[in-house]
Design a protein around this nucleic acid. Sequence first.
DNA 1: TTTCCTTTGAAGCAC
DNA 2: GTGCTTCAAAGGAAA
Length: 296
Amino acid sequence: MNPSEEALDAMVALVEAQLLHSDGPASPDLLSELHGSPAPASTPESQTDNSEQSTLERSPATTREVSHRPLGPAPRKTFYPAQRPPYSRMAHASPQDRATSSQPSLPLYMMIPGPKLVPVPSTGPTRHCPAMIHGPAMFQAKQPVFYTSQATAGNVPSRKRKRDADDAGRPYIKKPLNAFMIYRAEQRGAIMQELGITNSAEVNTILGERWGELSEAEQAPYYEKARVLKREHQAKYPDWSPKDNSIVNLSATANLHPMVILQSMADPQCMVHPLYVSTPRPVWITWSTRTHLVSR
DNA sequence: TTTCCTTTGAAGCAC
DNA sequence: GTGCTTCAAAGGAAA
């Protein structure tokens, strides 16, 4: 057994001991003991001290081959074509991320060995979810991928709901359009007709160029419209913030650990490591989209 | 069936 | 303060 395996086994032993002797959540001390700091996954130190692990966790391009329940006996599910090209948003990742993206990737909890799993209670029917909790859908989505489930019923917007209507309990509130988006909505039809283009990406490229060619005076009406939309949005949803659409915030709303939210979204049969079930909600999970899942 | 592509701007967050 | 990331929109293409 190599040192990293020993360390992981030690982590599991600690968690199990905690579970055996307490019905409540793991203490912050336990987390500190496990990770050496309150939020190790998000700190530069942790990424430096355990560069391999950090790199692995932040590499979405290679996660698709890995099951979300690698510790359990059930067969792996694949849900998107494995041949899909690497996540294009890696282009926006840091050079460090890009440099290491070819390395194998595993979320932290998947690196904890052994059959030490507990099932997350399933309290009812769960909507089919095509994505694994750490799978490419989570990494590749332009916005958080939400799927309804019993655990989060009424609060979680799905991609479908996002395009359809408000949920009974909590509407998915979209961001107001910015000036360019208003300009784009106004001009795209004319551009498509003028140039005979139907490809939206191409249209957007042209619109971006034309937007840049506009004078400040020509752009001003669009900024003003955007301000009006923003004021209306604020009046309609005074407490709304874009962060309300994040998974972490939803977990707070549902009073559930984000891992449980994610698990329930992904697969009612899947298992979650006790570490995730027993730890208090403050998140130290390292996710590829660190902004959403680590910062809290 | 689902995501990518492609743009700008607003907002949130980490450092 | 700076830099990074996400998401608003659209619809054809790709997997």
